[in-house]
Design a protein around this nucleic acid. Structure first.
Length: 112
RNA sequence: CGAGUAAAUUGGGCAGUUGCGCUGUGUUUUACAGUGAGGAAAGUCCGGGCAUCAUACAGCAGGGUAACGGCUAACAGCCGCCGAGGGCGACCUUAGGGAAAGUGCAUAGAAAUAUACCGCCGGAUUUAUUUCGGUAAGGGUGGAAUGGCGAGGUAAGAGCUCACCGGCGUUGCAGAGAUGUAACGGCCAAGCAAACCCUAUCCGAUGCAACGUCAGCAGAAGUUGCCAGCUGGGCAGAUACUUCAAAAGACGGCUUCAGGUGCGCGGUAACGCGCAUCGCAGAUAGAUAAUUGCCUUAAACGACAGAACCCGGCUUACAGAUUUACUCGCUUU
RNA sequence: GGCGACAUAGCCAAGUGGUAAGGCGUGGGUCUGCAAAACCCUGAUCCCCAGUUCAAGUCUGGGUGUCGCCU
């Protein structure tokens, strides 16, 4: 299995915030957009509103673990940006996997 | 049993399954093995290593430190000890050199190293005022007013004299020293130096986004630049350097050391020496997640909190638990 | 990750250790038939906690927050 490709530059994030579709739950926000690169790319945002460094890196780990489980089910090439919210640090990765699955279904990324 | 003082430790452990970073082995895209956050990783407040600045040298400026002896690579750290202050006590706090080199200290007050406003006393003049001198007991001002209090003394007073206390100096003794103590001397020296300042002593600057190698690169303007706040001295110089614009990668630096643990010896201690043993993160948008079982436990889901070149300290944050030494009070024997 | 700067009234801000200047704005008043302009009055936990000092906005130490720079 290849390593997950991540979004790194600021303009890529801003393109998704401006042009991508957004789907929200209390624990997670998702921005989706098609790309022409040929693979799926992911960016994770954890702002300083959430807490200190320990809480922010826990949010990143939980989101990354949930995405790793769902990545093989995705059909098509997309860019994703996940934004953590203040409730994310209290959620387990198995619970977040369910909410992420719902968001992917809303976005039409996963063919059921 | 109660109240307290000081110091130290811990921050659950073991195993399994899926998954992630790094290293090694096989191998060529998947296996196996090992390993994977802290006592503060934090704040970046001190000190050092390391690296660069073509030479890093000197002086000035600027900054740090400040009883004494030791430890240390070094330090504003630590240990011991002295003085001062606090506590019945165990013990705690302490930026703790110099105000007999100089400047400054608002307002009030007569006067803030300097005096005489009201007073008190004496002389002269004059006849109810003026002037000269003595004095620092009393008044008032202030944070601070010539060491404090009592007695003697005097025209009135005053360390003028004496006793006690406080401070200073000299000599003797004890100590490694700060200092302590005894005798003697004379009251001359008030406070503030985290105000300027003086004395002693230390400090070149910049920080791994330093710096090196490779790859890449496109130009335009300028002429002195380098070591920096200033000066001296020195070095390089068109194949150089500066500014603007553009481009932004890969590798090294990078983790084996002032390392950890145990034992012994020296030292009051900080710490040092010797022997044995262990290998213990190294990412580069940045790796630890999910779940199950057992054990210890009062409980373990629980605090504060995430390495980014590395060490020694300091400071700040911290749920709960444990241990040791000592003090005071009460009760019983 | 590293290096630095700042915090004073609602806003902009000055400030040698000794009563915290000023401007805009708020509120009240004077003036006017009513307004505007003008004039007068009005208001501060000097970011927080300790220390030095007779006395801290200022000096020293610690903390909090905001902002800037690096390649």
């Amino acid at each position: 299995m290849k390593r997950t490709v991540t979004l790194k530059n600021n303009y890529e994030f801003h393109r998704l915030y401006g042009k991508g579709k957004s789907f929200k739950t209390p624990a997670l926000v998702l921005y989706v957009m098609k790309n022409r690169v040929g693979i799926c790319r992911v960016g994770i945002t954890t702002s300083k509103k959430i807490g200190n460094a320990v809480e922010r890196s826990r949010c990143r780990r939980v989101i990354r673990a949930a995405y790793r489980e769902l990545e093989p089910k995705i059909t098509g090439n997309f860019d994703f940006v996940f934004v953590a919210r203040s409730k994310t640090k209290y959620v387990k990765s198995t619970d977040l996997e369910k909410t992420m699955f719902d968001l992917f279904c809303q976005a039409g990324v996963i063919s059921v």
